[in-house]
Simulated assay, not measured.
Amino acid sequence: MNFVILTVIFVLIVREAQSSIGDHSPYYQKCVEKCGLQNCTEDGLHFIEDQRPIYLSSLQWSCEDECRYECMWSTVAAFHHRNWRTPQFYGKWPFIRFFGIQEPASAFFSLLNFYAHVKMIKRFRKEVPSDSPLYWLWHYFCFISLNAWLWSTIFHTRDFPITELMDYVCAFSVVLMSCYCMIIRLCRNAPKFILVTITTFFVAFLANHVAYLGMGRFDYGYNMQLNVFIGTFTAICWFGWSTYNRIRQPYVWKCAVFVALGGLVMLLEIMDRPPFFWTFDCHSLWHLSTAPLICLFYSFVIDDCKYLHKLEQQTETKKLS
């Protein structure tokens, strides 16, 4: 478990410290300046002679953006000609666009995760009785996760300040919701006023976090530290609970494996390398690997709700007898 925690922390630190050698290089800056003077209007938004495909203009690729994209590849070629390593630009690896999509693999795999949630919540509704304990809790979890993966798709399709903010905020909402679901599961027999207090606290905490990130400059360090703390706390609690209940509830191995594999696949983030075929980077492969883990977690949730439903029925039968 310590390995999982250290992996998550190291991943986030590495991503926070990424440099942007490519966009700081004189070659790139001169290329962008020359391209802008030759092809763009004074505001840099429009081409003097615009003959782009409609899908580029629909995704709001301005003339300045096009210059940056073309000069990015010229700079990459210049670096490789000198046997230098592939540079990053504005904290990102160079990617080949696909119909105007900036990071096509990450965008597609984000949709794959979205689909995994849709598929598994349908299975959940089919197999779990609607009067089962925590039935609606997992529907709320699914809704928040779907929203997060939708914004992840949008962000990887087109990187704007607003799409970046929504991607980070919605990703945090999933981390917080996972923690909330874990606490509610462990404290489900607590008095109602305690459960209401817990819910109020989490809602207020999320609102405060969103308000803070949306005011002024985005605080990456604070957001990173908060995600690490809450994610680590949730993982430890789920793993400990699964270990404690492994005899009485044999299906909890799925939760334990989910936590362990979730930490293991984070190695893909550590092995940050230039994208294969300028399309598949380690971050996109991480998105790919999380899709089957979603199915595993829902499988655990389905079994757990069935167990709680059976337990509740047995308790009611004893009361009647």
Results as ranks from 00 to 15, higher is better:
69 Y>P: 05
133 P>F: 02
100 G>H: 12
179 C>Y: 14
184 I>Y: 13
129 P>C: 14
156 H>V: 10
179 C>V: 08
101 I>Y: 04
119 K>Y: 05
100 G>I: 14
82 R>A: 13
90 Y>M: 04
116 A>G: 02
138 W>I: 11
172 F>G: 01
70 E>D: 06
121 I>G: 03
92 K>Q: 13
181 C>P: 15
118 V>T: 12
188 R>C: 04
182 M>E: 11
139 H>F: 12
78 A>C: 02
66 E>Y: 05
115 Y>T: 09
184 I>L: 12
107 A>P: 00
72 M>D: 00
109 F>M: 07
98 F>M: 07
156 H>E: 08
160 F>N: 02
191 P>N: 11
133 P>D: 05
174 V>Q: 08
134 L>F: 09
174 V>S: 00
119 K>S: 08
186 L>G: 03
174 V>W: 13
73 W>V: 05
96 I>T: 09
146 L>S: 02
133 P>I: 08
80 H>E: 14
90 Y>I: 01
165 L>H: 03
155 F>C: 01
115 Y>V: 15
83 N>V: 09
173 S>N: 12
91 G>K: 02
168 Y>N: 01
79 F>S: 03
122 K>I: 09
137 L>Y: 11
101 I>E: 04
97 R>N: 02
179 C>N: 10
184 I>D: 10
72 M>K: 05
162 I>K: 07
92 K>I: 01
79 F>A: 07
132 S>R: 05
86 T>D: 01
114 F>W: 13
79 F>W: 08
88 Q>W: 03
76 V>F: 06
154 I>E: 04
106 S>A: 14
151 W>P: 00
170 C>M: 14
66 E>T: 08
110 S>M: 10
163 T>A: 09
84 W>R: 11
116 A>R: 05
112 L>S: 00
180 Y>V: 14
133 P>V: 09
192 K>C: 13
105 A>D: 06
131 D>I: 15
95 F>N: 09
180 Y>L: 14
167 D>H: 01
102 Q>L: 06
188 R>V: 09
93 W>C: 00
188 R>L: 06
173 S>C: 11
75 T>Y: 00
75 T>A: 13
125 R>C: 13
135 Y>T: 10
106 S>R: 03
121 I>D: 03
87 P>G: 01
119 K>L: 05
98 F>A: 09
123 R>F: 12
185 R>Y: 02
80 H>S: 10
174 V>M: 14
95 F>S: 00
164 E>R: 00
143 F>R: 07
104 P>S: 13
128 V>R: 00
180 Y>T: 11
174 V>T: 03
188 R>E: 06
135 Y>H: 03
143 F>C: 00
87 P>H: 11
89 F>Q: 02
175 V>K: 02
164 E>Y: 04
119 K>D: 13
87 P>Q: 07
133 P>C: 07
85 R>Q: 14
140 Y>G: 10
78 A>F: 07
67 C>H: 06
131 D>Q: 02
144 I>R: 06
191 P>E: 14
72 M>G: 00
112 L>C: 02
116 A>F: 15
171 A>G: 14
147 N>D: 12
